[in-house]
Amino acid sequence: QETIEVEDEEEARRVAKELRKKGYEVKIERRGNKWHVHRT
């Protein structure tokens, strides 16, 4: 599992979309004022 930390929701969604295109399962999680995209 890989976690990518980004600054805002828009970027989290963009990253998640790219990963989904490559066939990964992803989960977006908010952590305080950061966003984490988990590749599962």
Rank of each mutant, 00 (worst) to 15 (best):
E5G: 06
G32R: 09
H36C: 15
E25Q: 09
A12K: 00
K27M: 09
T3S: 07
K21P: 07
H36P: 00
K34S: 05
E25G: 08
V37G: 00
L19T: 04
H38C: 15
V15K: 05
K17W: 05
E9S: 12
E9M: 15
R13F: 04
R13W: 02
D8F: 12
E9H: 15
R31M: 12
E18C: 06
E7H: 14
T3Y: 13
R39G: 13
N33T: 06
E18Y: 04
V37W: 00
V6W: 14
G32P: 08
K34H: 09
R31T: 05
G32A: 09
E7A: 15
N33V: 06
E18K: 06
K21S: 09
K27V: 07
A12I: 01
E2T: 13
E7N: 11
H36Q: 09
H36A: 13
W35K: 00
E10H: 09
R14V: 07
V15L: 08
G23P: 03
W35D: 00
H36S: 04
I4K: 14
E5W: 11
V26G: 13
R13M: 05
H38M: 11
K22M: 05
T3I: 14
H36R: 07
E5N: 12
T40W: 14
K17C: 11
R30N: 01
E18G: 11
E9L: 11
D8Y: 08
K21D: 15
V15W: 08
E5F: 12
T40I: 04
G32N: 00
E5C: 06
K17A: 13
E25M: 09
E11F: 06
W35Q: 04
E2P: 10
Y24E: 14
E25A: 06
I28W: 09
E5R: 11
V26C: 04
V26H: 01
E11L: 10
R14W: 03
I4S: 01
R31I: 14
V37K: 00
N33I: 00
E7V: 15
H36L: 13
Q1G: 11
E11N: 00
K21N: 09
R14P: 00
A12Q: 02
E10P: 10
G32L: 07
R13L: 04
G23W: 03
R20E: 07
K17S: 07
K27R: 12
E25W: 04
E10C: 10
V15G: 05
E7K: 10
V6H: 09
E9G: 11
I4Y: 10
V6D: 00
V26E: 04
A12R: 00
T40V: 01
E29T: 13
I4D: 00
R30S: 06
I28D: 01
H36V: 10
T3P: 12
I28G: 01
T40S: 01
R14G: 09
E2K: 13
Y24C: 08
V37A: 03
V15H: 11
E29W: 06
E7S: 10
E7T: 15
K27H: 00
I4P: 01
E29R: 07
E18T: 15
A12V: 02
E10S: 12
Y24N: 10
K21L: 11
I4H: 04
L19R: 03
H36N: 13
K22C: 05
R30T: 09
D8A: 15
T40C: 03
R31N: 15
E29C: 07
R39Q: 10
E29G: 10
W35G: 00
E7D: 15
E2M: 03
I4C: 08
R30G: 11
E9K: 07
E9I: 14
R31C: 05
E10D: 12
Y24K: 06
E25S: 14
I28N: 03
K27W: 05
Y24Q: 01
D8C: 14
I28Q: 11
E7I: 14
D8M: 15
H38P: 02
W35S: 01
T3F: 13
A12L: 02
K34Q: 03
I4N: 08
